[in-house]
Design a protein around this nucleic acid. Sequence first.
DNA 1: TAGATTGTTAATCGATTAACAATC
DNA 2: TAGATTGTTAATCGATTAACAATC
Lengths: 215, 215
Amino acid sequence: MVNKSKSASDSTLKRLPLYLYFLKSIADENLKFISCTNISQEFGFDPTQVRKDIAETGIVGIAKIGYKADDLINKIESFLGWNKVNEAFLVGIGDLGKTLLGYRNFRTENGLDIVAGFDNDDSRVGSYICHKRIFHISKLPELAKRMDVKIGLIAVPEKKAQEVADIMVEAGIKGIWNFSMTPLKVPEDVIVENTRFSTGLAILTNRLNARPKSD
Amino acid sequence: MVNKSKSASDSTLKRLPLYLYFLKSIADENLKFISCTNISQEFGFDPTQVRKDIAETGIVGIAKIGYKADDLINKIESFLGWNKVNEAFLVGIGDLGKTLLGYRNFRTENGLDIVAGFDNDDSRVGSYICHKRIFHISKLPELAKRMDVKIGLIAVPEKKAQEVADIMVEAGIKGIWNFSMTPLKVPEDVIVENTRFSTGLAILTNRLNARPKSD
DNA sequence: TAGATTGTTAATCGATTAACAATC
DNA sequence: TAGATTGTTAATCGATTAACAATC
């Protein structure tokens, strides 16, 4: 019953959301069952790869038939931890921070509810941005403990990122979503995931440049 | 002189921006030279990996010394195509679209200038969002050709993504940055890069859930 | 010179893909 | 039943890491 937690590979975890959105998008078509072949064709993936990815969620399929569609949706969601709402704090109310505060899909699609923002700029403190109250960073530890918030998003300038991470760790935050380019040093029981917009762009613009000059 | 364009691996292209930001962040420290060991320590990477990544840019180092710091910055930037500004169009002025329109770092850091937005909702057409004019999607082909815009960002609902991609391809767009969950079918001379916020979150929330239940 | 670093070739590791028995 | 699919083990492929000669 309890998740065996062999912890799937990053590659698998990156593909599961794709399957999930696809399954949801065809949910209205009243398909009772769906096979790996079916899913793999949508994405051009190898069917075995899809099967292995799905197996990580613990679902058991039926030979010749496939997987029960709504069951599969639920299994992926709970495997990703998206079946319940996790509250989160966001630090850094700059350009990127506001962007993230305003992105509503996190709550509706991914079970992530950013309940408050933090900054060290007094002119921002006390205001509301996208209906989220902005507090001074010094209030984070107390609030994190009181509200039992375990996830923190970091959207501060490079030089401040480690300092903010230290505050979060001290406050009992267990998962940090780091949007800065700074690699963070944290205790090993704290999980860090780095997301940077520019990563995807690097691949795009490099290939775009390489193409015409190619031999 | 011309880029050999053996086209670096995705893994390499994802790490290069990290090195670039790091190099920029220490640029004021007046370091003339920097070594792979130096960079690798900042990120906890293998030094050989850093050396191979850097070698892709075509820079030649000096044994015992390392690489000329400002030269390395320039080489990475031009390898990524970030040394000049590329104009881009954005389609889909929903929650995510506005978010992307307002994110100024694309222009200042990554040489990507989103010059206009497009939507099929007439109520949005003609307005300005973040100082960017919003046009009807039907105007895209004409404007793309006139302004010679080669990059398009897709931030529309899943079901519309392929349709928008088709319009972009037809309009001569050569690089598509797809923020939807839909896999796009395009001719092979068009480059697609998929970026989804939720990917990083999936890794974070899965590991966060797996941890306490772990044996 | 000796030590440190580059550039490159070889070995290792892990993810993807192929093969195949079991199943409804 | 025959065909299609699952679940799993084996083979392949590519990226990471190790080893080492050349260099200033």
